[in-house]
Every structure is written in C-alpha cells, then in structure tokens.
Amino acid sequence: MTTQSKKNYVHDEYGWIRKIMIYVLLILGLAFFLLPVVWMLSTALKTLPETQAFPPKWIPSFQWHNFVQVFKEVPFGRFTWNSVWYTIVTVCSTTFFSAFVAFGFARLKARGKAVLFGIVLSTMMLPPQVTMIPQYLIFNKLGLVDSYWPLIIPTIGGSAFTIFLLRQFYMGLPKELDEAVEIDGGGYFTIFFRILLPLSMPGMATAAIMEFMYRWNDLIGPLIYLSTPDKYPLALGLANFTAAFAQTPWNLLMAASIIAILPPLLLFFFAQKYFIRGIVISGTKG
C-alpha cells in the first residue's frame, strides 16, 4: 500500500483540523436527528397526565411498565411476527427480481428499451390512490383478499423504485467487467451472478433496506387487503392505538412505536457495514 501512505502524507498537515470539524458537524447533526427520537422515548416513559403537562417535561417519571402494558393491550407479538415474515418475504422477492430486471435495463442493448424503461418509471408517477380499487378488484376476483397474497404476488415483477435504483448502480460499474467475462466465454447470467451481483452489494443492501422500510411501515396496503385483526402487521396495529373519541394513550403509542422501530434500526446498524466495505472495482479487472 504505497499509494495509501502517500495519500496520507498529502493530507497530514490539515488532518487534525479536519477531524475536529467532522466531529463538530456530526454532533450538531446528531442533535437535530435525535430530537424526535429522544422526545419519543421521553413520551413513552411518561404517565398519561404527564404527556399533557404544561409546560412539557423532558424528563419523564420513567414508567418502564408502559412497554409491558403495550403487550397486554394489543396482540403486539402477533403483529410483530406478521410484519417480520411479510417483510422478509417481500424484501427478498422484490430485491431479487428487481436486480434481475435492472440488469437487463442497465447492461443489455435492445430495441425499445428506452420506451420500456420509461413505462417502468411511469408506474411510480401515478398516485396509487386511483389504482388501488381496480387492483383490489383483481385480487377480489381471484379470491385472494384478506390474505397477504395481494401484497406478495406483485413483488415478482420487482418494484419500479428498486429497478431504477439498481439500474443506476449497475450503470456505474465499468463495462470492461462484462467484456472480460464475454472473452472468457461466459453468458449474461454469469455476468449477472458472478460479477455484477457481488460487486453491487452496497447497492443491493441499500435497495433491500429501502424496501424493508417501505414494507415495514406500509399502512394502506394491509389496510385495504386484510380484514382479520390477527393478520394485521405492526403498522396497522399501531394505527389502531389512537382512540376515536376518548384520549389517545400517547405514552403507550410511543412505547409501541419504539418497539416497532427497533427491528429496522438493528437491521440498519448491522447492514451498514456492507456500505463501509467499499469494493475495489479495479481488483477484478484481471
């Protein structure tokens, strides 16, 4: 790593100023981004009257049992399990099929490709509120409403968002890679599975995380298709926490929300190392 040491040498004179600046920025950012989260935690640990105190209190009376209470009030464990399996299935399926489609759009030449890709993008532009009912009617005809199938089956077509995202990542990879494989006599599947898929791991991980968040938080899809409370995912179960007329138990709702964001947060914490692992693309140039 001789180049590495040279690079460090160039930067050393500013090194420590830069470091301090970075930390200052990070801490300022932290204050901004953690504000809602801290407030959420504080509310979750309050009694109901405390949530309405005036002026608002930052330090709660630490009602840890609110977290226990949540599990007593609603079948929270069941909701979580529904969310977990549904999210895993749809994320895997969407990411895989989208990657496949994205490869086609990114690396292969064909007539009419631009128009087709335009159609892919277009499907995102129409507000879903007007396609919801026709789509419901399709699945109603198929006898699949009140199950997760209407939410899972369409994932075999990938999602326009993920296809677009991965296409952009694939297009960022040098084309010499493909040529090298072709010279070696490999087909497109080889290029896709052996080269692009591993090389675009940061992109794939990102796409998967995005899809995860979307599925985990989606309220309207499950609302339209599911009619059995036992099948509800967390997002819908949480929305049911707000009272119609009497007081909404904000403390419990916040406690439930914290439990709900923990799985995606943990996932992110562990998945982000895939972003760190920059892949030295030239290494495979061979």
Partner: peptide
C-alpha cells in the same frame, strides 16, 4: 364473528374499496 377494527380516519377508504368489491362486512 370476525371483528374488523380500522382506524377511524381510514374507514372510508376501507369501506369504499370493499363496496367496490361487493364484500362490505
């Protein structure tokens, strides 16, 4: 008997869709 509870703000959306599918509870 199956109880379907829906947040009040979303009931119209749910009911309208179900009416379209002719399966209002």
């Amino acid at each position: 008997i199956k109880l379907i509870d829906v947040p009040q703000d979303q009931i119209d959306q749910k009911m309208r869709t179900m009416i379209a599918g002719k399966n209002l509870p």
